[in-house]
Design a protein around this nucleic acid. Sequence first.
DNA 1: ACAGGATGTAAGCAAGCGCTTACTAACGGG
DNA 2: CCCGTTAGTAAGCGCTTGCTTACATCCTGT
Lengths: 193, 193
Amino acid sequence: MSGPTRRRDAGATRAALLEAAAGLFAEQGYERTTVREVAARAGVNQALLFRYFGSKEELFAEVLAVQSDELLAGPVETLLERVLADLLWDADADRVRQSLRALLRSVGHAGAAELLRDRLGTAYVRRLATLSDAPDAELRADLLVAWLLGIGLLRSVVGKQPLAGADPAEVSALVLRTARHLLEERPATGSGD
Amino acid sequence: MSGPTRRRDAGATRAALLEAAAGLFAEQGYERTTVREVAARAGVNQALLFRYFGSKEELFAEVLAVQSDELLAGPVETLLERVLADLLWDADADRVRQSLRALLRSVGHAGAAELLRDRLGTAYVRRLATLSDAPDAELRADLLVAWLLGIGLLRSVVGKQPLAGADPAEVSALVLRTARHLLEERPATGSGD
DNA sequence: ACAGGATGTAAGCAAGCGCTTACTAACGGG
DNA sequence: CCCGTTAGTAAGCGCTTGCTTACATCCTGT
């Protein structure tokens, strides 16, 4: 049987570090967050961070690894809506949202850019592109991902008004209507199809 | 007449520092660029950077100060098109484009965020909002600025394909059509106006 | 019970950062 | 011609960064 109160618990320490890191990476991005801050918020000696994660970079990768599948699992039709919700309702600190925001916040960092370029971004775009019949469907989906990125940054990082203070539901509805138009419209041609 | 070859020339030194800084800030952003790098590229002793600009932060501000008016001067109708051009044709290193990209690249930095929030972003939004009759015109303009920000980052910083490799003219046309729709559309209402 | 691995701690290293200081060398007006 | 001002230089200060090391302590299997 497990001891009543384990003061030495590798699993709990790892989890505490992971949670502290997720919060700080989401708030400040990768570069501005120091390993000492993470250890302090976790209430843990900072040497343990390196024992359990190897490096700051690997810790960051583990934080980002959380979200990959959860959002992508649902139906394509509501994918954009769900991502927007995670982006706009930033009050609560759900783990998926934290890791999404850590990704946005750290887009200047090579590791985050690579993840967005080669894995996450591609996965989103593949799904979003199925909503469009246009031959350049993937480009349109890329533009949508770019929009989400920009909205997240201008809202949470820059704090631009009126966007930062706007009703999330209104913003979401406006973006969704425009996104549908982007995916479905076709350029006017001289031949008139 | 001025001396034949002035080896001691404060104006030229300042200009060299400014140009080197614009290039590096555009390529790497504020935080990743070091004052030693700037001085080295300018071929100048790094102490002079502080003599002529006071601090890295003030040097950055001076780099960003370039673009403020130039783009905003033209007609509103082509404003979006011109910014998109500066964003998408990133081959040549025009000074206005460099400072625009330095701003995007450094959006995680407090100084850049403040400029975008309180000055530049507001100026763009004011003008863009005149293109819409909607009551939330400024919000829509904010969303456009967010889109520009996201496109610039996903293209130049992240390097996401197919966006990064797409024909700038096609991207521009697609974004402009969608932007017009965003500015002009109105939500469907139950009362049917 | 006790050896040995797992867990936690304190201290500090090398490197890099923005910035400053103490100095030399060139210029230009009197 | 000389001297104060200006431009340029070399060195390094104080601090922070990610990461490591040497060591104390606890827990568990046999």
